[in-house]
Design a protein around this nucleic acid. Sequence first.
DNA 1: ATGGTGGACATTCCA
Length: 270
Amino acid sequence: MTFSLTTWNINSVRLRMPLVASFLKTHQPDVLCLQETKCPNDAFPLAAFRKLGYEHAAIHGQKGYHGVAILSRLPLDDEARRDYCGKGDSRHVCAVVAPPNGPKIRLHNFYVPAGGDEPDRAINPKFAHKLDFLAEMRALHSEAERASGISSILVGDLNIAPLETDVWSHKQLLRVVSHTPVETETLNALQMDGAWVDLMRRHVPPQEKLFTWWSYRARDWQQTDRGRRLDHIWSSADLSGHLRSIEVLREARGWERPSDHVPVTARFLF
DNA sequence: ATGGTGGACATTCCA
């Protein structure tokens, strides 16, 4: 049996609902994880998702900013939210899903703080927040959960492009927030701590450039191709052998009134 | 070195 999951920073779920509907009709992932929904829970378009076959939802939104959601064709159990850094931001939601013939999987959906412009925690509180948020994420040990009989998947907009090939120019972005050494080292440490596997790079060789985000500010995003890989799909080690494909839907950046991020889909076989 | 665009919300903040 296959199990598929998409992560997508949607930059307003209400504005982008027609694009989401079109994507779900053509790709039909079992689970959709959204970030930057920018939508309070009582205004979330649950009915529209239900009509598309996504009857199960774990949502965590707020007015104006941030917001994460898990929409699913399969039942979701044991849903939870965590308030990272005690700021009251809606940046994490999780739930357990059990694909047919597969293990129980806890899905963590994150929207990590972008971190502002200046990569110095002493003068930029947003950058300090980003690093503190990542430090708090280290408490998630996928191995610990595995030991209690449950596998893990971590997805979301982590706002960090860790590899040299995750940005259009390693040299030119070394001092740009999202690709600074302190961020990429912190992300790598977090990944090792939890024994997380970077499934996108399991499927696409690290030598190949791979982007999931292109700035709105570029005159022609396609021509200059100044992208970054800010969106990620990680899993506990036991799931990596079940991965069958990763699809980065680059064409979605060219849709009408697009998000600046594109959907990334992982397909597993159990 | 600078500003470019886009979304929400309220007349600015955030990315």
